[in-house]
Design a protein around this nucleic acid. Sequence first.
DNA 1: CTGAAAGCGCTAACAT
DNA 2: ATGTTAGCGCTTTCAG
Lengths: 360, 360
Amino acid sequence: MNRVKIKLNVLESSREHFIFTHEENKMKESITIKDVARELGIHHVTVSRALRDTGSVKPETRELIKKTASELGYKPNRLAQDFRNKRSNVLAVVVPDLRPYFFAKFVSDFMEVAKEEGYSVMIFQTGEKPGVEKDIIDSLIGYRVAGVVASVTKDTVHESHFDVLRDESIPYVFFDRSPEEANASQVLVNNFQGAYDAVTAMIKSGKKRIAYISTHYRHQIFSDRLAGYKQALEDNNLPFHDSMVVEGGFFMKDGFAHAEKLMGLEEQPDGILAVRDEIGIGVIKYLKKAGFRVPEDVAVIGFDNDPMGVACEPELTTVQQSIPSMVSGSFELLLEQIKKNTLIIEKKVIEPKIIFRGSV
Amino acid sequence: MNRVKIKLNVLESSREHFIFTHEENKMKESITIKDVARELGIHHVTVSRALRDTGSVKPETRELIKKTASELGYKPNRLAQDFRNKRSNVLAVVVPDLRPYFFAKFVSDFMEVAKEEGYSVMIFQTGEKPGVEKDIIDSLIGYRVAGVVASVTKDTVHESHFDVLRDESIPYVFFDRSPEEANASQVLVNNFQGAYDAVTAMIKSGKKRIAYISTHYRHQIFSDRLAGYKQALEDNNLPFHDSMVVEGGFFMKDGFAHAEKLMGLEEQPDGILAVRDEIGIGVIKYLKKAGFRVPEDVAVIGFDNDPMGVACEPELTTVQQSIPSMVSGSFELLLEQIKKNTLIIEKKVIEPKIIFRGSV
DNA sequence: CTGAAAGCGCTAACAT
DNA sequence: ATGTTAGCGCTTTCAG
C-alpha cells in the first residue's frame, strides 16, 4: 500500500470516504494445460482430453491429471475454449425491461434452468426501443452466444432484425411477446382465453356492464385480450359498448385516471378488466377513494399475477400466466435447437389461469 | 423444410403444437478481417488497425477499410478479441436473487450505465447460498470478466472466496450487502441512520412504544438497523423493551404474523418499524384486519421503497436507499480500478431518505 | 504508413 | 493410450 487519500462528498449522499490505493498486483500468469502437462511430463493434449473426459486416456493418468490440475489451481480459460470452439456457453435473454416482476421472475427462473445445463446468461434490455433491440441482436453475433430468448418491444412488428442470428446458426425463441408471423419458435400465453375467462368470471358473479382498460401498446397480446373480452360478452348475450373500452398508459396512476373517467359516465361499469395488475390496482385505489365497494359495486381483475396484487385491499384477482412453464418451454425449445444444430419452429401456448382473490 | 411433426400436450398447459424442422443451414462462415483485407488487397493487420482506430493508417485507407468491412457485413469476433486480449468486456453482477425489486432495479440500472461504457453484463444469482456464491466467483475467473459487482448472501461473512479474483487482478466492488471488514471497495447504505430517522419520525408524530420487526438474516445491515432503532429510542428518552423486538421471516405473511403477536401483547406498540417493505405491508394488512387504524392507532414504516408499498392502503411510508446512487457509485469504483488496473479500497455510504406516505 | 511474424490457450484430426 | 501438427481470429512487436 503506497498511498492513502481521504476524499469527501464524492457522492451527494456519501458520508465517509477513504481511499487506499495499492499498486497493481503483478498480473499473475494463469495456469494453463501446458503447465499441468509440464508438471507431469506429458503432452498438453492429453491433459485437455483428461480434463474434458473425452478421447481415451488411461484411467489412472486421467485421475492423476485431474488431481494435479486441481492442486495447481488450474482453471480452464473459457475465452480460449469458446474461441476455439467458435461458440460460447452463454445464452442471451433480451427483454424490454428487467424491472417488472414478470420479466424479473422469468429471467431469474431462466438463469436457474440454464445453469443446470451449464449455461451462463447475459441479459439485455431494449427499453421498448426497436432500434436498441436491433443493436443488441447485432452485438450478439460478436459474442457467438449459443442461443437467444427474446421478448420483443411493444413496437417490434417484424423479426427481420433477427435474421442475422439465423445467418450464424444461432437459434432464438420468442416468449410472451413475439413478432407476428414469426419464423421461429414461440412460447406464448393464450391471452384471448385469459381475457375471456376473466370476463366470464365477472359475469358469473352477476356483473353486467364490464369495462376493459387496455394500454396503448399495439402488440398482439393486447388485441388478443380485447378480442377475448368481446367474445365473452357476446357469448353471454351482453352488449358491447365502445365507451367501455379505454386505453393509454401502463401504470397505477393510469388505472386510477381511467377508473375515474369510467365511473363518471352516465352508465357506470360494474366490472373492470385491467390489462395489467398495476393498472388494476390503480383502479381499486380509485374505487375505494370514491366510495365504491370492491367487489360488491365494481369487480376488478388484472393480468400478470404481480405480487403487488396481494398488497392491495381487497387483494386483486388476476389472470396468471405460468412463468415456470414459459421458462421451461422456451429453454427446451432453445436447447433442442442448440443440441441438434437444427432450426425448429414450434409454437407453445400456455393456458392462463385465474387466481381468485378478493376483487371479484 | 424436410419434415413436419405435430405434437400435443408437451407442456401441461399447451394447446397448439406444430413443429417444423428444417435441415441445418450450413454454418455460413463468418467474415473475418482477412476477408476484408483480401478484398482490398492489403494486409489484415492494417484492417485490424483501421477498424480499431489504433496505430497509424492513412486516413483514406482507414475510411475505405471501414466502408468495405461494413459492406461485407464484417462483425468483429469478440471471442477472438477477448481471447487475444486475455480479458472480456463483460461485467458480472452477483446478487442473492433477482426478483426482489431492489435487485431487479439495481441490475436494470447497472446494465444501462455499463452499456454506455461498452460493457455487457452477466448476471448471477446465489440464492442466498454461500456455496453457490463461491462456485460463481470461481467460474468468473474462467470468463476473465473485466470486473465484478456483488451483493453477498445473508450468510457470507468472509470475503475469502473473492481472493481468486484478486489473484487474477479482476476488481470487485460490494454493494448493499458486503462482508464485514471487506478488503475491497464498498457502496453501502447508512442503515443505522435509516432506522434512526424512521423511529424518530414516529416519535415526532406522537408514538411512544415502537416495535421493530427484523429478519433472521444475520447480516450487518440488519444489526445496523437495530442499533439505529435503539439509539433513536434512547435519544428520545424512551425505554427499550425486549418484547418490542421480534425477528424471523422475510415476507408479507411474516409481517402479518409478527403484527398479530405484537398486538396481542399486554402492552401494545403504537408504531412498528419493519425491516422490509413487504413485512411492513403484512403488518398493515393485519392491523386493518384486526380493526386498528393506520396510522392513528399504529404507525408503520418499512425499508426499500418497493413500489408494492404504494399498492397498499394506506400507502406505506418507507426508508429509501437511492438505487441510482448505488449504481453509479459502484460502477465508478469498478471502472476506475479497471482503467487504472489498480486496487482501490473505498467505502461510499449512501444516506437513506424517508419517503413519507400514509402510514405514519 | 504498411507488412511480416509470432502467439494467445485450446482442441480436432491425424499419426504413432 | 498418447503424441504431433495445425490453426481458430485477432493483436502486439518488430521490420521495412
